[in-house]
Write a protein that binds this DNA or RNA. Structure first.
Lengths: 135, 135
DNA sequence: GGTACTGTATTAGTGGCCTAGTACAGTGAG
DNA sequence: CTCACTGTACTAGGCCACTAATACAGTACC
């Protein structure tokens, strides 16, 4: 699990860590029960304070996608996220609406919106399948 | 064009204004050449400093969705956005990927992702059509 | 039990985002 | 030309997000 940080991007470091780990999980590169690098180890790799990594892990734990065990380490949780189906759909809806509103304002039409969606979805699905058979 | 601000939401006021105007345009509630409320007028309505509204309008102008004329006012621009098709698709792809990564981490499956997408897309499309015939 | 690893807590400082006050400048109608 | 409206520039301050230093606490394994 390689993580690349761009300190000059304006996006907070801990958020970059969060989103890359989330992407790794969604793509199937990180599977349930896989260990994440320790707070210190990743901190050294990224030349960052351990607390910054801990902050990222805290967010991820709060969202239920990882769990921690003192002394042992941090791991990807299998199907965490304690939310009702409706809540999940609402969260997803809002993110998709944000994307589509942006797309429409960019002048893209219905066909292009659909195409883009399918392309991204396929990328995720096929990545997950590839990782699943690889292990 | 009613705009509702929640000062305690944590989201900066100017961003709330930006996203609501973007949504209004995408939904077809605001059509090209429609005037936006003046900086001062909207500032009074929202009990906010005129500069805060101006900050929002600055962002929107930078993105090309509105244009301003000194002394005259601010208007919705018809199909602004000077970007190549590829750039637009890239912006959209990143937003959709973000949404889908979130969806997958929430434990939603491919069918649910598709359903949610279609529902949101239909909402936008039908809203635009309704507004178009209404005017 | 000690050693070396995990994550955690506390504190603090810097930077910059966000908002506001206030004064300036352009435009259009009468 | 003047008035009343537009948006703009400049300044400044408060608040908090973000990161870091450093010390503490739990776990595993020899």
């Amino acid at each position: 699990m390689y993580i690349a940080i761009d300190p000059s991007s304006g996006v907070p470091i801990y958020m970059q860590i969060v989103s890359q780990i989330k992407t790794g999980i969604a793509m199937g590169r990180l599977l349930p029960e896989d260990p994440l690098p320790s707070v210190r180890q990743l901190a050294v790799e990224l030349s960052v304070n351990p607390n910054t990594v801990a902050r990222a892990y805290l967010d991820l734990e709060y969202e239920g996608v990882i769990y921690k065990r003192q002394g042992a380490g941090t791991f990807v949780s299998g199907q965490g996220v304690e939310m009702s189906k409706n809540e999940r759909r609402k969260v997803l809806s809002e993110l998709i609406e944000k994307a589509l509103v942006e797309g429409v304002n960019l002048g893209l039409d219905e066909v292009e919106l659909r195409e883009t969606f399918e392309r991204v979805l396929d990328k995720i699905i096929s990545s997950r399948q590839a990782e699943a058979v690889g292990k």
